[in-house]
Amino acid sequence: MQLKINGQSMDVSVDQDTPLLWVLRDHLKLTGTKFGCGKGLCGACTVLVNDKPLRSCSVPVSVLKGMNITTIEGLSGSTAIQQAFVKHDVPQCGFCQSGQIMAATALLATNANPSENDIKNTMTNLCRCGTYPRIKAAIQDVAKKELIL
C-alpha cells in the first residue's frame, strides 16, 4: 500500500484495517504522533489529512490511500503556532503536545482569526497536565498576528 506522508510516497505492507497511528509509529518509525486512548477520544494521535485534523488511532490506513497525510514531523518545528507554543511556555509533560499542535494548525488553516468560542469548540484534545489556558493564549497570539499581517 502506498501512502503520501509529509510529501513523500511511502510503501507499507500492513493489514487494511490497521489504524494509521500504528502504521506511522510501529512501521514507519514516525513516533512524534502519540497513542493516548485508541478510541479517538483524547486527540494525542492527531495528524492532518488533506489539511483536516484526523485522530489517527481510529482510521484504517486503507481509506487514506492517495491523500496528503501530515504528521508532526512534517511541520518545520518553527511554524507560527509552534513558536507560539514555545513563547507561551505551553508544554508540561509534553506527551499530548504533538496532537495539540496538529489540531491548532488545522484550526488556524481554516480560520485565521478564531474567536474564543471557535477555539473552545475546536480544540477538544485532552491534556492531563492542564496546559489549556496556555494553548488558548498561544492560538490567540497567532490569530492576532495573522490579522496584523
Binding site: 509509529r25 513516533t31 512524534g32 504522533t33 502519540k34 497513542f35 504528521t71 508532526i72 514531523e73 511541520l75 518545528g77 509552534q82 507554543f85 514555545v86 511556555d89 505551553v90 508544554p91 508540561q92 509534553g94 506527551f95 503536545q97 504533538s98 499542535i101
Partner: peptide, 16 residues
C-alpha cells in the same frame, strides 16, 4: 521550559 522545542516538534523521545 528547557525542552519545550523538542516537545512541540515531536522530537522528545518517550519510552514508546
Amino acid at each position: 521550559t528547557i525542552d519545550a522545542q523538542q516537545k512541540i516538534s515531536g522530537e522528545l523521545k518517550y519510552t514508546g
